[in-house]
């Protein structure tokens, strides 16, 4: 395979931890990388361990609710937009209602809704 350098968007990948040191870390440092932006409010370097992603489910993190989430959401959009988010619980509740009332999302039974919202709030949260 023809190897080329590529740019990786940290938020999309969610799990990258730059381990470089010394001169190489100095050169690789990007002051506009969102997760290490020292000027952003409450900015911090993500140290969470890498979550296992499920390629069968659009690379959503493995976990309870991943399958329900995948099939609920991909009727309209790919998982890429989900994987970028880090929202408050209240924003996820709002988005769910907006998807149904405004964007024509199919409304599942209450149990499925709870499973999906719990999954989203667990894996794509600004609170935990």
């Amino acid at each position: 395979m023809n190897k080329q350098p590529i740019s990786l968007r940290v938020l999309l990948c969610a799990t990258i931890a730059f381990g470089a040191t010394g001169a190489s870390s100095q050169e690789a440092y990007d002051p506009m990388r969102p997760t290490v932006n020292p000027l952003g409010p409450a900015a911090s370097i993500t140290t969470a361990p890498a979550a296992e992603l499920d390629p069968e489910l659009g690379n959503l993190p493995v976990g309870l609710g991943a399958e329900d989430t995948y099939y609920q959401c991909i009727a309209c959009h790919s998982t890429a937009i989900i994987r970028q988010q880090h929202l408050t619980d209240q924003r996820w509740d709002y988005l769910w209602t907006w998807m149904i009332e405004d964007q024509g999302m199919y409304e599942p039974d209450d149990e499925t809704r709870d499973v999906i919202l719990e999954y989203l709030k667990t894996h794509f949260s600004s609170e935990r």
């Binding site: 968007r9 938020l11 999309l12 506009m32 969102p34 932006n37 952003g40 409010p41 409450a42 900015a43 937009i81 970028q84 988010q85 880090h86 929202l87 408050t88 924003r91 988005l95 600004s126 609170e127």
Partner: peptide, 15 residues
């Protein structure tokens, strides 16, 4: 949008 914390929903555009 990527620089807002807590996150704001939508594409996480940087610059």
């Amino acid at each position: 949008r990527a620089y807002y914390n807590p996150g704001a929903s939508g594409n996480q555009w940087t610059t």
